[in-house]
């Protein structure tokens, strides 16, 4: 553990919140990496807007996790003072941006899950989570719509855009199994009526994915080996690099403010 890192008392509920918050922060950070690099100004703004939606969700979820943990940790502590192994996000969201097609496919696969997830979470027994869900659901609906429009155009566009989109789908597909993963702690949170069983989202998720890919003239990848580990802090090689950049300032100048 790097010096200055925090230790989080991970009860099932705190872990449940951190997992969702980390998904949103890491994916939001990935989208922020497009700033100044997007293929066109219009899409640069679209990617930044989606990133800001996600970072907003992360902030609300970290704030709630801090309140539930009741150990005095705030959103910045969770974001900047945890190591790679302390991060609980899906492997999918930490995968590198790659080209535009890859970023859009990654965003789409996540958003097609997050949209029905947050809609269902609006009925959470936890009032704060239900309120976060009501805001996130609208944001994710837009992410699905925006990414779907691009996937149709990329898949059904030029030979080059089609090839790149298929490559992205093929490479990212093995990370989608983790969306539906639950462990014992999650089951307790679900049993309490605070969380929801992601298995109930498998059909809607697949329906959205299949519908958009069909419209794009693309095939849904075959089911096969699925990778996991993100939820317990076993990450791919990419998260460490992302955190090094994201946490650098707070780690080298603790408590720095501007």
């Amino acid at each position: 553990m790097a010096s200055g890192s925090i230790r989080v008392a991970e009860t099932p509920f705190v872990s449940y919140l951190l997992r969702r918050a980390d998904d949103a922060l890491v994916l939001g950070h990935r989208l922020s990496e497009w700033c100044g690099h997007a293929p066109m100004m219009e899409e640069e703004m679209a990617l930044a807007n989606m990133g800001l939606d996600l970072i907003g969700q992360a902030r609300a979820l970290y704030g709630h996790a801090g309140a539930v943990e009741a150990a005095g940790h705030d959103e910045d502590d969770f974001a900047y003072l945890r190591d790679e192994r302390g991060y609980r996000n899906l492997l999918l969201v930490e995968q590198r941006n790659g080209d535009f097609a890859r970023t859009i496919v990654r965003q789409f696969l996540y958003a097609a899950f997050a949209e029905p997830y947050w809609r269902a979470m609006m009925a959470s027994r936890d009032a704060t989570l239900a309120a976060i869900a009501a805001k996130a659901e609208k944001e994710m609906t837009y992410h699905v719509r925006h990414c779907a429009e691009w996937i149709v155009r990329l898949g059904d566009g030029t030979a080059e855009s089609r090839t790149r989109t298929i490559a992205a789908l093929t490479d990212l597909w093995p990370f989608t199994g983790e969306l539906f993963e639950v462990d014992e702690g999650d089951r307790a949170v679900i049993a309490d009526g605070i969380g929801i069983d992601p298995e109930t989202l498998r059909v809607p998720w697949r329906r959205t994915v299949a519908h958009v890919l069909a419209e794009a003239g693309l095939e849904v990848p075959k089911e096969g080996f699925m990778r996991n580990g993100g939820r317990i802090g076993r990450h791919s090689e990419h998260l460490g690099h992302l955190l090094a950049e994201m946490q650098y300032l707070q780690r080298s100048m603790p408590g720095e403010n501007w």
Binding site: E43, R145, W150
Partner: peptide, 10 residues
């Protein structure tokens, strides 16, 4: 369609 979305974003 994408013009409408870009207008929303911009």
């Amino acid at each position: 369609t994408l013009a409408l979305q870009a207008a929303r974003d911009l």
